[in-house]
Design a protein around this nucleic acid. Structure first.
Length: 287
DNA sequence: CTCCTGTCCTGCCGGC
DNA sequence: TGCCGGCAGGACAGGA
C-alpha cells in the first residue's frame, strides 16, 4: 500500500535513472486508471526532458522541460519498473503506462487494481493544482510544529486515527503508519482528536516522523504489491508492532495477554485499526 | 461547512 | 479440487 515511505522509496530508486532523460514517446494502455489522460496524450510530452522527480504526500511528481508535470499516484497496487536499453523485458499483465526514452531505456507503470492515477498539470504553480490545493503539511515540514499539529487536531470532531488519515491535515500517512505511530505514541486510536493534550500531540508528531523515517530506511512495507524500483521488496513489514497482528502479543506490554489476546482490531471509517487497548491507554497499563 | 458511507478494482484466502 | 464470498486499501463523490 503505497504510503509516504513507499512513494519516497520509489522516487529515490527512480530519480537517478530518469532525470535528464528525453521522452521519445509516452504510451497509455486501453484500460483506464482511476484518473488517466486520453490514449493520444503522448504527443504532448514527446521530445520533452525530465528535469526533476519529486514527491508530495503519496504522489510522485515528474517535472518536464515543456512546462508540464506528470502527477502519479500508485493507488494501492501500483509499481514502476525501469528497463535499461540493453535489457529485454516482456510485457506483463496490468502494464498501463510506459515512458519510452530516446536512450532506449523504458519506464513501465504496472497496476493490477488500477486504483492509480496519472494527472498532467502545468508546471507553473503545480503545488496549487488538484490534488495538492487542499493537501496539508508534509510530515517533515519544519513549519509543522507540535503547536501547529495540536491546533489542527483541535478542529477535528473525529477519532485521532481518522484525523491522521486526513490528507488535508498532514499528508502521506495511510492505514499502516497511522496504526504504528499511535502505538509508538501510546495513544488510543479511538480518542477524539480534539481531546488530545498538547503533550500527546507532541508525542504523536514525533512518533509519526520516527515511524516514517524507519520505514523509508527499510525500503517501505511490502504486503502484496509494493516493490522498490529494482524489484526488491521493502522489509518494514517485518517491523510492524501492531499492523496486521491481531491476536498476537503486544510488543509494548505483557499485562493484558491472557485477558484480551494481545493486539486487537476494530473498524474505523471502513478500515481496520490495530492497537493494544492496554498499552495505548496508559492509565490501564502497569508499565 | 463537517462528517460519514459507498464506490472503484483485482488478487488472495478461507470455507464449503 | 473448484467455486464463491469477503476483504484489503486511498481518494473522492454524494448524502446527511
Amino acid at each position: 500500500m503505497p504510503e509516504l515511505p513507499e512513494v519516497e522509496t520509489v522516487l529515490r530508486g527512480l530519480a537517478p535513472h530518469i532525470v535528464g532523460q528525453e521522452i521519445r514517446d509516452f504510451t497509455i494502455g486501453p484500460l483506464s486508471l482511476r484518473k488517466s489522460p486520453p490514449a493520444n496524450f503522448g504527443k504532448n510530452v514527446r521530445k520533452s526532458r525530465i528535469i526533476e522527480a519529486t514527491r508530495r504526500g503519496k504522489y510522485l511528481v515528474v517535472h518536464l522541460s515543456n512546462d508540464k508535470s506528470l502527477i502519479h499516484h500508485l493507488g494501492m497496487s501500483g509499481s514502476f519498473r525501469f528497463i535499461s536499453a540493453d535489457f529485454s523485458d516482456e510485457p506483463r499483465k496490468h502494464d498501463h503506462l510506459a515512458y519510452h526514452f530516446s536512450s532506449g531505456d523504458r519506464l513501465i507503470y504496472n497496476d493490477p487494481r488500477r486504483f492509480g492515477m496519472l494527472i498532467p498539470v502545468p508546471t507553473q504553480n503545480w503545488q496549487d493544482a488538484e490534488p495538492f490545493r487542499t493537501m496539508g503539511y508534509e510530515p517533515f515540514d519544519e513549519a509543522l510544529t507540535p503547536q501547529t499539529f495540536h491546533g489542527l487536531l483541535k478542529t477535528k470532531n473525529i477519532a485521532i486515527k481518522l484525523a491522521l488519515l486526513d490528507q488535508a491535515l498532514v499528508c502521506g500517512i495511510g492505514n499502516i503508519y497511522a496504526c504504528e505511530a499511535l502505538f509508538m505514541a501510546r495513544i488510543s486510536p479511538l480518542m477524539p482528536a480534539k481531546e488530545m493534550a498538547r503533550t500527546q500531540a507532541e508525542a504523536l508528531l514525533s512518533a509519526v516522523r520516527s515511524v516514517l523515517n524507519d520505514a523509508i530506511d527499510s525500503g517501505g512495507s511490502s504486503l502484496r504489491d509494493h516493490k522498490q524500483v529494482n524489484g526488491e521488496l521493502g522489509y518494514f513489514q517485518h517491523k510492524f508492532a501492531v499492523y496486521d497482528r491481531a491476536g498476537q502479543p503486544c510488543p509494548g506490554c505483557t499485562c493484558d495477554r491472557d485477558e484480551t489476546g494481545g493486539i486487537r482490531v476494530v473498524r474505523q471509517g471502513g478500515r481496520s485499526t490495530f492497537f493494544c487497548p492496554v498499552f495505548q491507554n496508559v492509565s490501564q497499563c502497569s508499565r
